[in-house]
């Protein structure tokens, strides 16, 4: 019995070790390469050059803004829809599931090509209508709303899965009834009882969406906008060291953002309990 347990422990350790090596060795090698000054010493020149390169802050801010707005739009769309379906129309649930999963079967390139087509075609046909202004406005390079629209679509399946998993864990109908029985109206029942219990699901949906937006390259690049991912690929090509530094930096930034998000989510919870 004891030997079995120690065997399992050993097996686990081995798996962990193999995975660790698989991820850690290339990373460590990259880091070392990016700070090696080829005379046996270290230098952070690649990083400082990157941070000082024109457009670094702008593109990073744009990416974070896009991520924030995408999360907000997604949650504002999905949460009320999913709650309404659970509370009022359980039969609609499979329909919502199918709709939310549709973007998975459309390749990003196809989606982008479609968007390009509409954006080109639009102005020709809509030039006399107010929609023309709309088409121009959503392509404003300082904040391209068209990217938010695309990202909402791309993140929809993931955000939906995260929220749906959270909703499965709570008996929304009973909780709302119990809250109403205690004198809470519909809205208060949702805000004081349902949403607090969906905290981790909301957080998961947000984290997945942010990760997707920060890493998205295809659409932004084809449509000609310059969020962080696009900026990195165009500015990291000058020399080998720089291109490695760029990928490490982008990894770090995404990690920091995601860690911050989950720390904020957890922190509030422990503060209350």
């Amino acid at each position: 019995m004891a030997s079995l347990i120690s065997k399992i422990r050993f097996g686990r350790g081995l798996v962990l070790l193999v995975c660790g090596v698989y991820f850690a060795v290339p990373m460590a090698a990259s880091v070392i390469f990016s700070i090696d000054d080829s005379k046996g010493g270290t230098t952070f020149r690649a990083y400082t050059d990157l941070l000082n390169a024109p457009g670094f802050m702008d593109s990073l801010t744009l990416s974070l803004e896009l991520a924030g707005v995408t999360v907000a739009v997604l949650l504002l769309l999905l949460v009320p829809a999913l709650l309404a379906a659970r509370l009022g129309a359980p039969k609609l649930r499979p329909v919502i599931e199918v709709i939310c999963s549709l973007p998975l079967v459309v390749p990003v390139v196809a989606l982008t090509t479609g968007i390009v087509g509409v954006l080109r075609w639009g102005p020709d046909y809509l030039s006399d209508t107010p929609l023309f202004q709309t088409i121009v406005a959503i392509q404003d390079p300082s904040f391209p709303i068209v990217l938010v629209i695309a990202y909402v679509l791309m993140a929809l399946p993931f955000a939906y899965r995260a929220l749906d998993a959270g909703l499965r864990g709570v008996d929304v109908v009973t909780l709302v009834e119990a809250a109403r029985n205690c004198g809470a109206g519909w809205a208060r029942a949702v805000f004081t009882v349902v949403l607090p219990n969906l905290r981790s699901a909301l957080l998961n949906a947000a984290v997945l969406t942010v990760a997707l937006v920060l890493g998205e390259f295809t659409t932004a690049s084809i449509l000609g906008f310059a969020p962080f991912s696009v900026w990195i690929s165009s500015n990291g090509k000058s020399d080998g060291q720089m291109s490695v530094a760029v990928s490490i930096l982008s990894l770090l930034i995404v990690w920091v953002v995601l860690l911050l998000m989950s720390a904020v989510g957890r922190g509030r919870k422990s503060a209350r309990s």
Binding site: D171, E177, N181, A184, N197, R199, R272
Partner: peptide, 28 residues
């Protein structure tokens, strides 16, 4: 409406609010 009915209900399934303590549940 239900929230003004003045009827206290105990449900068949466990219906306490999971994010609140026993005291906060009762005080809800």
């Amino acid at each position: 409406p239900a929230h003004k009915r003045d009827a206290g209900m105990v449900f068949q399934s466990y219906s306490l609010f999971p994010h609140l303590t026993a005291l906060d549940n009762v005080a809800f």
